[in-house]
């Protein structure tokens, strides 16, 4: 008897918490189907009094939405390529090549994760503007081709779990280091590449700070910058803004739904061991 009461209480608590956690999503989606008047009517109702879908076309028309989306897709795609190209190579050199620098570099990789962007943003801005590269996508894309510490740590962890004998088998056949990397190691790390690929996609898609600093020309905005244009007037058209946000967030949710397992593994390994 006592057991079943505590079970019910547990379920009630879990259901309440789950509801609280998804409520912002519900608010976002449901507001996007309200008329703006409806959103600003008391008493506030969770569901629209009248369901309308006009907010979507209106949101796309109010700002150059698809241009911004194109810009965002472009930056995301190039960053993704850069990260996938460089990360496994660097990670490989840290655990699968026996050389003096490996430990030093591993330490430095960890250390750079702690450098606040607040410190680096002024000099980076200064140098990019000197080179005439502000209001281009170079400052946003370039770092992807030099490896991001967090991703390197995740892939390094993965390589560390692969037996050396698997890779050294290639040595006997007289393969070069690069061939061993490319033909043996790289195919093995497909699952972890998926994981960092997802992170790289998410990071580039959601990035706000770099575009904020380096992009001031409205035509070159990314979606995360563009969303603010709905807010710069005296009042905010929340219904439209939420419609725009839904479309912005949708690819992320789809990606998460498909790759949930990779998300969880990536965080579990890096968070614990890093």
């Amino acid at each position: 008897m006592k057991n079943s009461i505590s079970k019910v209480l547990f379920f009630a608590l879990v259901a309440l918490l789950a509801l609280i956690f998804i409520s912002p999503f519900m608010v976002m989606v449901l507001t996007s189907f309200k008329t703006n008047n409806d959103a600003f009517t008391i008493p506030v109702k969770l569901f629209p009094r009248v369901w309308v879908k006009e907010n979507y076309p209106a949101a796309f028309a109010a700002i150059p939405y698809f241009k911004y989306m194109g810009n965002t897709v472009f930056i995301t795609a190039i960053s993704l390529i850069g990260q996938l190209l460089v990360t496994p190579m660097v990670a490989y050199s840290l655990v699968k090549i026996k050389w003096k620098g490996a430990d030093i570099i591993s330490g430095l990789v960890m250390a750079t994760m702690m450098i606040p962007i607040t410190v680096t943003m002024v000099p980076l801005y200064k140098i990019y503007s000197k080179l005439g590269l502000t209001n281009t996508y170079i400052p946003l894309i370039l770092p992807a081709f030099f490896g991001k510490a967090y991703y390197i740590v995740i892939v390094r962890q993965f390589f560390a779990g692969i037996p050396n004998s698997l890779i050294e088998a290639g040595k006997i056949d007289g393969a070069t280091e690069f061939q061993r990397y490319y033909k043996i190691a790289l195919p093995l790390c497909k699952p972890v590449l998926t994981t960092i690929g997802i992170y790289a996609f998410l990071d580039a898609w959601s990035d706000y700070l770099y575009p904020l600093i380096f992009i001031t020309k409205p035509g070159m905005y990314t979606l995360s910058l563009g969303l603010q244009q709905y807010m710069s007037e005296y009042s905010v058209d929340w219904a439209r803004l939420m419609a725009a946000a839904v479309v912005f967030v949708l690819p992320v949710i789809v990606c998460f739904a498909v790759f949930q397992k990779n998300f969880v593994e990536g965080i579990a390994t890096s968070g614990l061991k890093a």
Binding site: V86, M89, V90, Y92, S93, L94, I97, K98, W99, K100, G101, A102, I105, L108, V109, T112, P143, F145, F146, G147, I152, E177, F178, Y181
Partner: peptide
């Protein structure tokens, strides 16, 4: 080889 493989990160660093 180690230096070559990690060179992108070193340059970025």
């Amino acid at each position: 080889n180690g230096l070559l493989f990690s060179s992108p990160w070193i340059l970025g660093f």
